[in-house]
């Protein structure tokens, strides 16, 4: 473990219906670092990510056991408002899903919901977060255009901007570059490297090279189990488990 843990996952078991998706997961996510959930498709990475902000609540027949502790609060067994809890975490999904409204309104959406109405403050904030996501220069003259008119790479950065706008502490990203061209992917990766000073970032990926580029901390998963975890330098240079070695060699994907 390097650094103080921001998220502590203890004995987490997730099943949907009769199918066990995650088995006895114990993971610590360090603060202000990029933690990469690495593993082949279908190993439960995305489910683990969605458990972190309780989007699993949307699914039927989901059974969660264990605990996830964020800032001394067990979010799986809590009475506090899940909406507030979700606000703590920005989510970036595989493909960008801009809200059906203008570019400006996309970023202002979370702000308005949390009660900010003053036009001037909204304008300042929208500009600030669009700059944060390196999108401002490309869209400042067409903020009223529908967000769906942007290119897919721009849309993903817009999603980042609207996520940052609600002032989260944690960024959850589910294969955020899988639908993007190389240049947009690079932009997102660089952004993450920059953002980690202020945010705790959890990235799901099955792209080994990407993990090597950005990870500070690696959690390697396979078929619902955590096989190995630790500081990136250690895991990549000296993997201990056979599965991990095989995966690094490209034996399976």
């Amino acid at each position: 473990m390097n650094g103080t843990p921001k998220i502590i996952i203890r004995n987490l078991n997730v099943s949907i219906g009769k199918q066990q998706i995650l088995r006895n997961i114990n993971v610590q996510v360090p603060e202000n670092k990029i933690t990469v959930l690495l593993g082949p498709s279908g190993c439960g990475k995305t489910t683990l990510l969605k458990t972190l902000n309780r989007l699993t609540d949307l699914y039927e027949d989901v059974n969660l056991k264990g605990s996830i502790i964020i800032d001394n609060e067990d979010i799986l067994n809590t009475n506090s408002d899940i909406t507030m809890l979700r606000k703590k975490m920005g989510l970036l999904s595989q493909r960008p899903y801009p809200l059906p409204m203008s570019i400006f309104d996309n970023v202002a959406y979370g702000l308005r919901i949390s009660g900010i109405r003053k036009k001037k403050i909204l304008q300042e904030k929208v500009r600030h977060y669009l700059e944060q996501a390196s999108l401002w220069d490309e869209v400042f003259d067409r903020l009223k255009d529908p967000a769906s008119k942007l290119s897919i790479g721009q849309q993903q950065r817009l999603c980042l901007a609207r996520g940052l706008a609600v002032d989260p502490e944690i960024i959850l990203a589910d294969e955020p570059t899988s639908a993007l061209d190389p240049i947009s992917s690079q932009a997102i990766e660089e952004k993450f490297m920059e953002l980690k000073q202020n945010y705790t970032i959890v990235v799901v990926t099955h792209i080994l090279r990407q993990a090597r580029r950005i990870a500070d901390h690696v959690v390697f998963m396979y078929l619902g189990d955590v096989i190995e975890q630790g500081p990136a330098a250690e895991i990549f240079s000296n993997p201990k488990m056979d599965r991990t070695k095989q995966y690094f060699k490209g034996a399976f994907n």
């Binding site: 909406t83 999904s93 809200l99 979370g110």
Partner: peptide
């Protein structure tokens, strides 16, 4: 829906 919820809606 997930996007909107994760923005605190």
């Amino acid at each position: 829906t997930e996007s909107s919820l994760s923005l605190g809606a």
